[in-house]
Write a protein that binds this DNA or RNA. Structure first.
Lengths: 187, 187
DNA sequence: GTCTATAAAAGGATAGAC
DNA sequence: GTCTATCCTTTTATAGAC
């Protein structure tokens, strides 16, 4: 009796993503993953050294997806319009793939782990600095990123209640972009 | 041989908080909690029905602590100064008690679970509405809360790197407060 | 590459003695 | 109120057969 291949790295990652998006991170166990793939948990160790490797591969996928989404949302745009497009794409990515987003945003890491994290930062840095006319306007990036992440995180946690956030995103975004360009707020 | 009391609800909660703040939520097990208290895990069930009850009690404590900190930071203040004081107190609470803050902010609940959550929302709502001169300015509260939470969450995740957030809090806060009061950003 | 079998650890919870 | 003893469940991971 032979044992023909039943899966590969891609199928495992696809299934892992499905579990995580529908049932949350706690539900991602080797057993559950194997069950969905129609094989035994021990077989997974022939494709990934351990559970953590799966999570890391998922993280790399997530970071590059987000970066791609941001880039393609903003090509050809400039100034405030570019930042609005970036912001909308950011929020949409997070609400469409909350678990993947969580992996990117809540991971206890800075730019060290994935080169995409650095690229993401630079994308924001260039776009924001262009708007505020300050070179390397780190503080402004921090402010914008904080706002976007906070909105996404609170929304995902259901903190805005059933009635929803009601314009808080647009309101905050335009207030922030307006305020960041004002001179009195720079010093 | 008798078995004199070794603990009570307060000591248990205090110890649980200590574990959570120093080792994270994953480390809070009945066994570890009992070990730190110098007794057996089974004894804890005479004080709390189950692990979840401990977590809920901790959550109630956290929410009322935050509310108290916000209130006492802003009594007697008005307008932009009141909001700045509230914001600073919010951020300080979160950085001083990250695990407790996480319990408040990441819990998948709205105002239903704790009355403090509603009180917190109302405190922000009143203060923000006074500044923007709009009655029940929900969108502005959403914007401010998102910014504060995002800043705190990204900072806690180390996303701003070793160099730190470098003025991003002050910059964003003043930009946001300025921008939120402008008429063109309201409609 | 998948299988069975199993080790090993960790955690929640209960029964009944004292 | 705490103790010992125990059960049950879940999970990661490895060894060796096919």
């Amino acid at each position: 009796m032979s044992f023909p291949p039943k899966t590969d790295r891609e199928a495992i990652l696809r299934t892992a993503l499905e579990i995580v998006e529908t049932q949350g991170w706690a539900a991602l166990s080797m057993r559950e993953l194997a069950r969905k793939l129609g094989l035994r948990a021990s077989s997974l160790y022939h494709h990934f050294p351990d559970r953590n490797a799966i999570e890391e591969a998922l993280g790399a996928k997530a970071a590059s997806s987000l970066l791609l989404a941001l880039k393609s949302s903003s090509t050809g745009l400039k100034g405030k319009e570019k930042l609005q497009a970036l912001s909308i794409a950011y929020v949409e990515f997070a609400s469409h793939s909350p678990a993947l987003y969580h992996l990117i945003a809540a991971a206890p890491s800075s730019s060290d782990t994935h080169p995409e994290a650095k690229a993401l930062w630079n994308l924001l840095l260039d776009s924001v600095s262009e708007l505020t006319k300050q070179t390397d306007d780190t503080a402004a990036v921090v402010a914008l990123w904080a706002f976007l992440h906070g909105y996404v995180a609170l929304e995902a946690a259901g903190k805005f209640g059933p009635s929803g956030a009601k314009g808080g995103l647009d309101r905050g975004l335009s207030a922030l972009l307006t305020g960041l360009t004002k001179k009195q707020n720079i010093l």
